[in-house]
């Protein structure tokens, strides 16, 4: 794959990178650095991309692996409550309130649970999730069930 083709493909799928940054990195400056690191690592790994999976799935895998093996600064969110994490002055509709609660609940999960549930919510099959994460398909199903219950409880609580 040429440099131009690779870059245009990354650009077309940058939503995947942003999604992972959104979940694992807090400050905008860190997000920018991590974004560049992901692109660099993807470029270094492109020779091993065999094309037997979609480019988007492959990019998701590289992005997740890069973020999870990078020295990340500690997040602030775990120490905060939902009230302090969300701006009090924000006039939120019922819908955005629900999505913000979901975001907050997901950010409180551990790294692995976060990866599994977001892949599931993005409609990846259990087979694909098992392949990306490295656990069995049956255990993916069990984990998803448990995490969903936990998220629902957190969103109601």
């Amino acid at each position: 794959m040429t440099e131009e083709v690779f870059l245009s493909k990354v650009k077309a799928h940058e939503g995947i990178i942003n999604k992972i940054l959104y979940l694992y990195v807090d400050s905008k400056e860190d997000k920018r650095d991590m974004y560049q690191e992901i692109v660099l690592q993807a470029w270094k790994s492109i020779g091993r991309f065999r094309g037997d999976s979609q480019f988007s799935t492959w990019l998701y895998r590289i992005s997740l692996n890069t973020v999870m093996t990078f020295i990340r600064k500690e997040g602030r969110l775990k120490q905060e409550t939902l009230d302090t994490a969300l701006p009090v002055t924000m006039a939120v509709s019922e819908q955005s309130d629900r999505s913000m609660k979901l975001m907050f609940a997901i950010k409180q999960l551990n790294d692995i649970e976060k990866s599994i549930i977001t892949l599931h919510l993005d409609d990846y099959s259990n087979d694909e999730i098992a392949e990306i994460i490295g656990i069995s398909k049956n255990n993916v199903a069990v984990k998803i069930h448990r995490i969903k219950d936990e998220l629902k409880k957190k969103m109601k609580g």
Partner: peptide, 23 residues
């Protein structure tokens, strides 16, 4: 949960947006 996640996607897309030259 999926409904709430889809609502979040709009927010997520407002992330880092690098130009081709920067990439």
């Amino acid at each position: 949960l999926k409904e709430a996640w889809n609502e979040l996607k709009t927010e997520q897309s407002k992330g880092i947006n690098l130009e081709l030259a920067q990439l």
